[in-house]
Amino acid sequence: MMGDTAGLPPEHTQDAGPACRPERATGMSNAPTLLDRYRLMVTMRAFEEACAQGIPTGELRGELHLADGQEAVAAGMAGALRSDDWMVSTHRCHQHAIVKGVPLEEMMAEIYERVTGLSRGKGGHVHLFDMEHRFSVTGIVGSSLPVALGHAYACRLDNSDSIAIGITGDGGTNTGQFHETMNMAAIWRLPLVILVENNHYAISVPAEEVIAGRGIAERAEAYGAWGRRVDGTDVDEVAVAFAQAVGHARGGNGPALLEAVCFRFRGHYEGDIDHYRKTVVKRRMREEGDPLTIVRRRLLERGEVDETEIAEVESEARGRVRDILQKVRETPGPDAVEAFRDVFAEVPA
C-alpha cells in the first residue's frame, strides 16, 4: 500500500495490529485538532472535484456519486475511529474511505478504472475493497448494514474491542436491512455503530415524505439502542457525538445509531438534473451549510491559525490530490485478460 494518509495524524493510519489495544480504547488520546480535521475535509473536497473532472472528458460515466457538502460527517469520525475498526460504506463512499485511511492513489486509480486501482479496475467507484484498512463498500442501498453486522459479530467472536461502522443514508433507513440489522445487533449486543447521513433526499424523494415516525435517530428506541441526531455540517458536533456512539458500542452496550443531518451539494449522481430541489435552496445550502466554510471561520475566530496558514493547508491538500489525479491519468487500464480472472478461487482441472 502507498503511504497516503490524507493528512491524518500518524497514529490514526497505522496498520491494523493486534485486536486489543486498551491504551487506545478511548480513541481520543490522539484527538485530531480542528486544523487536522480541516485538512482532511479539504482533501475530501479536492478528491471529489478530481473525480468530477473525469466526467466531461468521458473517462468516467455518470454512475459516480460525489459527497461534496458532507465532509463534516466523515471527518468527524477521525479520532474515535480506529484502524482496527471495520467500516462498510455506501455508494457515496470516497470520504469514508479517506477517513479510514484507504490510500488516495489506489482509490483514485480504482475510480478511474486503472490497473493500479485497489481492484485493478474491476470494482469501480461503488465497489471499493481495502481489507488492509478494513474498509469495503456495497453499491446497494441498505446492504452495507448487514455486512457491518457481520464484522461486529466477528469482533465478538474474536473477543476483540474492535467495532464495526455501517454507513447508510436517510433512504437506507427504510430498507429491511436497516431494521434487521438494528434488531440483531441489539439482541446480541454487538459492537456496531450505524451512521446515517441524512442529506434529506433519497435520490429525489424528500426524507420527510417517506420516513414515518418522529425521525431516524428515534428509530433506535424501538430496538433499545442508543440513538442521537447531530448537525452533520458541524465537524466538532459530529466528532463529539460519534465518539459517544463509538464509546457506547465499544463498551459492550450494543448498537448505536447516529443520524448526521447534512447537505448533498451535487445531484444524486453526476448527470442528475436535480430538478427536485429549488435553485434558491441549493444556493442557500452552499452559502450557509458548507462545512468547510464553517470550520474555516471557526479556526480564524479562535485565532489558532491565520489566513496564511489556512491557505497553506488548502494549497498543500489540493496540490497532493492534483498530483495523484495526474499520476492516475498516466496509468493504463487493466489488460483484457483481467476480465476473465477472479470469478472463482478454485477451478476444476
Binding site: 448487514p146 455486512v147 453486522l149 457481520g150
Partner: peptide
C-alpha cells in the same frame, strides 16, 4: 450459541452478515 446461531427470520440480514464474517476471516 456464538458458533451455532439461531437467527431471527431475517434472511437478508444474516446472509449479509455472512459477507462481513467472511471478510473478517471467518467461514460462514
Amino acid at each position: 450459541e456464538w458458533r451455532v446461531r439461531d437467527t431471527p427470520i431475517s434472511e437478508m440480514g444474516f446472509a449479509g452478515m455472512a459477507v462481513g464474517l467472511a471478510m473478517s476471516g471467518w467461514r460462514p
